[in-house]
C-alpha cells in the first residue's frame, strides 16, 4: 500500500520511494529511505498534510507526495 493509507497511530516499513529528485533526496536526508520504519502521528485539521515520525522526529508530508511512497504495514 502507499503511505497516504496509513492511519494515525499505525506503523509501517518503507519499501520504495517513487519520487522526483529533489524531494526524494530531501526525504532520504531526513532518514526516510527503504527499510525505515515510519509511524503516522496525525493529520492536520484540514485533512492534508499528515505528520509522520521518521528517525525520531516529526515530519509533515502532503497526500500527493505520500501516494508515491510504497510501504508495508
Amino acid at each position: 500500500m502507499t503511505l497516504e493509507k496509513l492511519r494515525p497511530g499505525q506503523r509501517a516499513t518503507v519499501l520504495a520511494l517513487r519520487l522526483r529528485e529533489p524531494l526524494r533526496r530531501r526525504l532520504e536526508d531526513l532518514g526516510l529511505a527503504e527499510g525505515t520504519e515510519i509511524r503516522c502521528l496525525g493529520r492536520s485539521p484540514l485533512g492534508d498534510p499528515a505528520a509522520f515520525l521518521i528517525c525520531g522526529s516529526a515530519v509533515a508530508l502532503r497526500r500527493a507526495d505520500c501516494r508515491r511512497i510504497e510501504v508495508e504495514g
Binding site: R20, P22, L23, S57, V59, A60, R62, D65
Partner: peptide
C-alpha cells in the same frame, strides 16, 4: 507543478 513539501515539526 508542485515540487513537493516536507516540513519538520520540531519538538
Amino acid at each position: 507543478e508542485s515540487a513537493g513539501f516536507v516540513l519538520e515539526l520540531p519538538p
